[in-house]
Structures are given as structure tokens and as C-alpha cells.
Amino acid sequence: MTEVRLDGLTKIYSGHKPAVDAISLTIPSGQFVSLLGPSGCGKTTTLKMLAGFEDVSSGAITFDGQDVVRVPAEDRDIGMVFQNYALFPHMTVFQNLAFGLEMRKIGKAEIKRRVQATLEMVQLDHLADRYPAQLSGGQQQRVAIGRALVIEPRILLLDEPLANLDAKLREEMRVFIRALQKRVGITTVYVTHDQAEAMTMSDLVVVMFDGTIAQAGAPSEIYEQPRSATVAGFVGQVNLIPAVVEAHRPDHVDTPFGEIPLPFPAQPGAKVTLVLRPEAVDLHRADAGQGVPAKVISLQYSGAIVDYVLEFADGTRMDVKTIPRHRVMVGDEVRLSVDPSRFWMLDGEG
């Protein structure tokens, strides 16, 4: 169990703007943290600095208060899972797992016992004598995880480990990795560009853009209370509604499609942006007595859920996602209502 702290961590490749720009972050012991962001946001560079594969330009990395910036990768006691697994192709599954233990000069019998136990944990004990090339992608993935965990490292680092798997297997591995992490209780840093992966697996999601941390928080916090329109848009579909806080009633805002009560008061007269998730909107029939009228411009039917694009009288549009209760066709008039508590508000114009 190790607490990891990044303090002003910076990486500058000469002649470029910082790849990682003075980020600070505390990862509590035993937590599962995702670094989430588009490619080039610095998440992988951050992971490489944690692993010791990339030199730190400035700032500190500490494990339980101990500065590791100058500790070489081989002495950091880290379990690393690579995107393409990076298994040793010339070693059997057993030998792959035994490698890290051999480096730690552990006795043969003990190696055998620990490798066996880990293979059982990743459900591969029946494939111990196979070579990596004889395994499926999902099995190779589990060898990579087993190889990283068998050395009982201080922290576990995963670099987009599910990127090369098909959709169904990816779902399975998500659950598998998270359950394993909880069981072992190891501090884990997970790099991904897939927001669904980060949301479902993590205790803490760190959203990164342009080498800086845009927001760090629990998945629900990132989703429901984003700190910027960019964060809001990166972790899911979102409607950004420009609004003005009413002068006489600071707990209400004016929007193009009506007046909306806020769950909290704001600066009277201020320009704000309302953040509204498409699934927070309730859709009613045109003849319902309540709600703002709108017209269905297009819809995408996917069984359990339907995605609509609606247009208000003033021409502004809104995405709505609902479980369909009644049949609505393109061109139909509908009415919308939103529970005021489902709105989130950003200062200014997003």
C-alpha cells in the first residue's frame, strides 16, 4: 500500500512546449486512479515518468514520502502493464511471470509457489507452459497483468491495456482488472482515452488536456459537476446552454427556451452556461400540460435508448436521450421538462 504524490511534475522535450506542465496530484494508498484525456495530453508521459522510463524535467514524484525521481526504473518496484502487453516472446507463461522474481533473487521453490498462485488469480494456471504467441489477446493481457502483480510491486501502472481488445472482451477485462485491483488492494494508475473505461473502473478520474490537469475527482463528480465545458464534453454528450442569471431572482436563469430555477443562487445578472446531460431531460407528449415545447428534428433508435435532436421555437437545438415511453416521430411536437437539480452551471460562456 503506497501513497503516490506528484508535485509540480513537468516534462519538457527540448524545443517543444511542455508535454506535462507542472501537475500536482495525490493518489491515496490503494486507490484506482485513471489519467483520462485525448492523445497528446501528457497522460502517457506522466505514466512513463512514474515508471522511470522518462526523465523528469522538474518537480517531484514520491512514493510514501520517498522521492523516487532519481531511482532508475529497475529499482522502483513497479508493476507495469503495456498497451501491447510486451510479453517476453521467448519465454513461456510461467517463465514470463518468474522473471521478475528471479531478478529479486527469490528461491526456486518460492518462485514456483508464487507464480502458481498468481496464475490461478489471473485464471491461467492451465496455460503455464505455453508461449505468448500461442495465446489469445485476452490471455496475453492476463499474463501481462499477472507478470506485473507477481512481484508484489508498490504500485501498478497500466498504459491503455484494453486498447487492443475487442468490445466484448474489453468489458470483461474492465470488470476483471477492477475486481483484481480491489482484491490485491494495490495503488493503481490507469491511462486511457476511453471515458467509459475511466468512469466504470476508477475511484478517482484525472482529466488531462495539454499537459495539465483539467479536473480530478470521483467519476460522478467529473460527470455531474464538470469544471469546464471541455471536461463536460470529454466525459460524455452534453448540452451547453447560454443563460443569464435573473437580476431580481438570483436563483433563476433566463434561457432561450424559458426561465429555469437553479438549485443554488448565483451572481445576479451574470452570464453563465448551463450544463445539461441529454439523459437528464424528460420528454412528454405535446398535449401534456407542462414543459417547454420543441420539435423533433432527428432521432436515432437503438432499442433500449433513443437519441433525439430537438429544436426550440427560437431555433436552438438540444440533444435528448431517453428510454422511450411513447412513440415519437421526426417532425412531432413534444414538450420537455428538467428536474432543476439536474442542471450544473459554469461561469461565463463555458
Binding site: 522511470g52 522510463f53 529497475e74 518496484d77 503495456f82 531478478m103 507478470r147 506485473a148 512481484i151
Partner: peptide, 9 residues
């Protein structure tokens, strides 16, 4: 692959 070997010590 060599990077993985280093991370394993």
C-alpha cells in the same frame, strides 16, 4: 519488451 524487463527489476 526490454522496458518491461527493466520494470521487473
Amino acid at each position: 519488451v526490454p522496458a518491461a524487463a527493466r520494470s521487473l527489476g
